[in-house]
């Protein structure tokens, strides 16, 4: 039997943070909820066999996000008829005109791996080593990816302001 109470406590303590990270990664509120649910289901399957649930959950979150962004033959397909449009004025993360919303909108335009590095480094406040361990990439790659992502953000923000 799994330690279900432990899992509940973990979700109550870290669920909101993971959900916000998922929203930042996906750039969408609902897709973020789907993503965090996917990651937490994976965590539930492994619960009791892992020593550090939070890093595992972060890694599952990022991996699931990167996995979802890959094009698949069974995935989403372009269509001539657009589905019902989401209400952009209902508190969506991509809406807004102030600088913070602008930054988050630009963040959604980054590559999935760049976005993951930015979220882990500046939202989850992980070190380069921890980010490297979470993403499964060398520290040097984390540094270069982070640098490239920040440069793109600066360029986008500067061009948007001008």
């Amino acid at each position: 039997m799994r330690d279900e109470e432990g899992f509940r406590s973990f979700v109550e303590a870290n669920g909101a943070t993971l959900l916000h990270a998922a929203r930042l990664l996906t750039g969408d509120h609902h897709r973020g909820e789907d993503l965090v649910q996917t990651a937490l289901i994976k965590l539930y399957q492994k619960w009791g066999r892992i020593e550090a649930p939070l890093p595992y959950a972060r890694r599952a979150l990022v991996n699931a996000h990167i996995d979802q962004t890959r094009r698949r033959w069974w995935g989403e397909r372009p269509t001539e008829t657009l589905p019902e449009q989401a209400d952009l004025d209902s508190g969506s993360a991509t809406a807004g005109s102030d600088s913070r919303d602008e930054l988050r909108r630009i963040l959604a335009g980054l590559a999935p791996r760049e976005r993951a590095v930015i979220v882990l480094r500046y939202y989850c406040d992980l070190s380069e080593q921890e980010t490297s361990a979470t993403l499964g990439m060398p520290v040097g790659t984390v540094k270069s990816t982070c640098s490239r992502a920040l440069a793109r953000l600066r360029v986008e923000v500067t061009s948007g302001a001008s």
């Binding site: 279900e4 899992f7 509940r8 979700v11 109550e12 669920g15 909101a16 943070t17 959900l19 916000h20 930042l24 509120h29 909820e33 965090v36 649910q37 937490l40 289901i41 539930y44 399957q45 993360a93 600088s99 913070r100 919303d101 930054l103 988050r104 963040l107 930015i118 979220v119 500046y122 939202y123 920040l150 953000l153």
Partner: peptide
């Protein structure tokens, strides 16, 4: 600025643990 932007609306929304466990 980047940290502030990322932490904006932090903590909004809660997860339904029972639904999560049921789905799992």
């Amino acid at each position: 600025d980047l940290r502030a932007a990322l932490h904006d609306d932090d903590g909004n929304g809660a997860l339904d643990v029972d639904q999560l466990i049921f789905a799992a």
